[in-house]
Write a protein that binds this DNA or RNA. Structure first.
Ligand SMILES: [Zn+2]
Ligand SMILES: [Zn+2]
Ligand SMILES: [Zn+2]
Ligand SMILES: [Zn+2]
Lengths: 147, 147
DNA sequence: TGCTAGTTGAAAATCATTTTCAATTATTCC
DNA sequence: GGAATAATTGAAAATGATTTTCAACTAGCA
């Protein structure tokens, strides 16, 4: 399931980072996101609650959260960075709605067979993979059907 | 296999584009690429052969080639666009060497089972997927082992 | 040989992201 | 609680990729 604010804060301290009000605010804003978001979007959201938070700080905090593994980057879509809350631990991927940006996490990608085949055929050492599905959620499909 | 220069030129004309010397030059520069490339890299390469070709034209021509399906974008790596020659027709994916950028195309991703499962579990309409493997080719591995 | 709509490219605009650096502050250690 | 200190902040400037603008040019057609 999802991490709590204080779990994240504890991990942050443990990794040697300082806990500042700005960082708290960014973390809390991240935790309300149901879909992927850009640094700029998160900045707006965080700045609305606590005026004076800087865009640069948002960038830095997001980078830190990604480094600590609490958020991850998604690649499908757009000309700028998109982040996403990451569910606890497990290897997973995303199914993203191209209409509204809603994200469904899923596990069990089962690419080991394909990976083995590629390793055998190419002699590459394979270190990872990027997999994302793109589609349309029920709401977006209905909206489109209506008009 | 790969398209020839004249096949590409014919398709371009057929799609209503004009065949200019600049576009020929870009196409021919693209066709020598064994790995993925950025617009800037291709610009350098093309400009070396025919001085006076503009970066903007390179951007535009690459976009056009992507629209026509002769090149495709790769997502693993970097802060800027990376393109890649696309082998004829078939649905395929890439295995990319993180060391040198070498690319291996492969087909047979076989994600239909997973796709069916996701469709059932989420009721999304799934329109496509993004899959890339990242690894290290034999040469890069040897180079690293040596020191 | 013109005509014309498509194309080019230099320069400027845009936009995301990063760097810089002086002021501020969270944490640690008395 | 009060320094000391190194991390953090954020405004402003820098960077870098990509896009837009627009006047000059030209491929393709008749
Ligand atoms: Zn949707
Ligand atoms: Zn996976
Ligand atoms: Zn390599
Ligand atoms: Zn596939």
């Amino acid at each position: 399931m999802d991490y709590t604010q204080s779990e994240i804060e504890r991990a942050l301290r443990k990794a040697g980072y300082r806990l500042t009000p700005q960082r708290r605010e960014v973390i809390s804003a991240v935790m309300e996101c149901r879909r992927h978001f850009t640094p700029a979007e998160l900045y707006e959201k965080a700045a609305r609650r606590r005026s004076g938070i800087g865009l640069v700080t948002v960038y830095r905090t997001l980078e830190m959260l990604a480094r600590l593994g609490f958020i991850c980057e998604v690649h499908a879509g757009g000309n700028c960075r998109h982040y996403l809350i990451r569910p606890t631990g497990e290897h997973h991927h995303h199914l993203i709605c191209s209409g509204c940006g809603r994200v469904v996490n899923f596990t069990g990608c089962d690419l080991t067979g394909l990976e083995r085949r590629l390793r055998r055929e190419t002699s590459f050492t394979i270190s990872g993979h990027l997999l994302e599905f793109v589609g349309q959620c029920v709401d977006c499909r209905r909206r489109e059907e209506k008009g």
